[in-house]
């Protein structure tokens, strides 16, 4: 087994990575994030996470995470809200290109030892290829994700829904990792090779 692992560098790396993630997330429990329509008929990604940390720690870690994600937030008491962006692509075999920019609202509430958040108000702005062969946003078009197209374009819409769910799931993984990790270690100084020190 050991020999097999040594021979396959990539699987070993992936295994280690998974073990790392599992160990990091072992301390927290969460209701699995769900992507479905809420009571207002809006697509929503909703998740409750139990994280055994004081509420001010949860708050400061969340602030750091949202800043890293480029989400500007407004805080009010034990609640936080902001706006964020995903970009989704369309691919088939070897071709792939940006399909749409998805903007969403972010809401979060936290208490001692747990927090919950949801992403909602997803709206889509499509990309279009310009004269230089590059994809650019079609500014001025903003379609709520809930707006179902006719049967001719349903397949694309369903693919976009899956892409948004995937993007929300990846957001969730990044967030839970950021919330669970300990304070970032000080950046280590680059090591200098000393010929006399051996």
């Amino acid at each position: 087994m050991f020999l097999r692992l040594q021979l396959c560098g990539k699987p070993v790396f992936l295994l280690c990575y998974l073990v790392c993630i599992c160990s990091t997330l072992a301390g927290q429990t969460s209701s699995a994030g769900r992507f479905s329509k809420d009571e207002n008929d809006k697509f929503t990604w909703y998740e409750v996470v139990h994280e055994p940390l004081p509420s001010d720690t949860l708050f400061s870690r969340m602030q750091g995470f949202l800043a890293a994600e480029g989400i500007k937030v407004l805080q009010s008491g034990q609640e936080m809200g902001g706006e964020g962006l995903f970009r989704i692509s369309r691919s088939a075999l070897v071709s792939a290109h940006p399909a749409a920019r998805i903007s969403f609202s972010f809401h979060m509430e936290w208490k001692e030892g747990k927090y919950r958040y949801w992403l909602t108000n997803f709206t889509s702005t499509p990309f279009k290829r310009n004269r230089y062969g590059q994809f650019e946003l079609q500014q001025g078009i903003s379609t709520p994700l809930e707006e179902e197209p006719g049967s001719l374009n349903r397949k694309n819409w369903e693919a976009d829904l899956k892409s948004v769910e995937g993007a929300a799931r990846r957001f969730s993984v990044r967030m839970r990792l950021a919330m669970a990790r300990s304070a970032p270690a000080q950046a280590s100084q680059p090591r200098v090779v000393k010929g006399s020190d051996w």
Binding site: K128, R129, N130, R131, Y132, G133
Partner: peptide, 15 residues
């Protein structure tokens, strides 16, 4: 060698 920056229409029918 670039598509021209002049004009409204383009060569690609997609545009």
């Amino acid at each position: 060698f670039m598509g021209t920056f002049v004009g409204y229409e383009v060569i690609s029918p997609v545009g």
